[in-house]
Design a protein around this nucleic acid. Sequence first.
DNA 1: GTCTATACGGCGATAGAC
DNA 2: GTCTATCGCCGTATAGAC
Lengths: 195, 195
Amino acid sequence: METKESIIVESRNFFGTFGYEATSMSMIAEAVAIKKPSLYSHYKSKEDIFKDVLDKEMQDYIAHLKSVLNDNQKRVMEILHDLMKTMSLDSTGDASADFYYRYARYQPQELKDYIMERYTESENTARVLFDDIIERGKREGEIDAELSNAQIYSTYFLLLDGLAVTPDFYGKTYQEGEFDRVWEVFQRGIRPASV
Amino acid sequence: METKESIIVESRNFFGTFGYEATSMSMIAEAVAIKKPSLYSHYKSKEDIFKDVLDKEMQDYIAHLKSVLNDNQKRVMEILHDLMKTMSLDSTGDASADFYYRYARYQPQELKDYIMERYTESENTARVLFDDIIERGKREGEIDAELSNAQIYSTYFLLLDGLAVTPDFYGKTYQEGEFDRVWEVFQRGIRPASV
DNA sequence: GTCTATACGGCGATAGAC
DNA sequence: GTCTATCGCCGTATAGAC
């Protein structure tokens, strides 16, 4: 792997796990197996590394959503189910998810504007993708057409975020069942009334 | 206000808004209007300030929940509705909520064990309080008795957390409507089938 | 592009006078 | 309990040889 690639990967892991301030250039350098000053041959500052990591994560996130949501072989509720399940199970220890959800909520002051712009772009794109699939769900009778797309979208994303970042206060067994419990309530909440 | 009280309040605001690492003893001292070394007459370290803030927030959180949940004048769904609404609207800029939700998910390494213990205690207490009210909701026909308490609890808390901490990517108007949209889906998801 | 050496600043924390 | 002065450390970042 190229040195620059390695810097991105290791930095993302540290930023996601420990946060921006708690991640030092020394930690990154050690993980990449070079000396600290060598980092500055690739990036002019710690902020610049962060921005590069962020841009890459945004691209990957959208690419992932597109590939999952545009599967016309599957029924809509199956797609939404599988996506939520993946998020809730894989996310513990998933470096990309850790990173994505952390900086959606908590931005270092000096990077706040930059970060918020990127998330706004990303969430707007995600919204369009979801509008399409929700519309399909309504047409095919899986989702109650009385509900607005915004309703489905808001609720689904709140649950998704929650599942992705909730720490396990209650232990492993509880957490494994959490997705199924939550999914049932969501599914009851959006199904057509007459079914 | 006593100096020590003031330290707690200002520290909580900074810790909640900017995070533990991004909050310096100088910032706290300036906000309290004393010099930095004077802080050490009240606390022996930054970690100690944090622990005191955390303990206090936990107590307040549980006290708040108790007072809201044990209102037998109100119907169960009304209580759950009002609590979620308060969280979703007041929480933007509510220093206590900012603090509580931030450290539930992200702990500085050196304080991790201490923080997790406190949250586990707090969440276990919250769970008992919710079990009671959910049982009441089932008895009084507002909640489908087919669903487990864990289901209601998990889903409700995921939504609550989400509403409390979601940043406004979409602007003010969108955010104001978010609570109502989410509440309807939740309410449809847990109501008895025959109603 | 990588290294050794180093600058400079802010951090948490302490000493000791008042 | 509050202050001024200061310590030691580690952070980001740079200079300059190879």
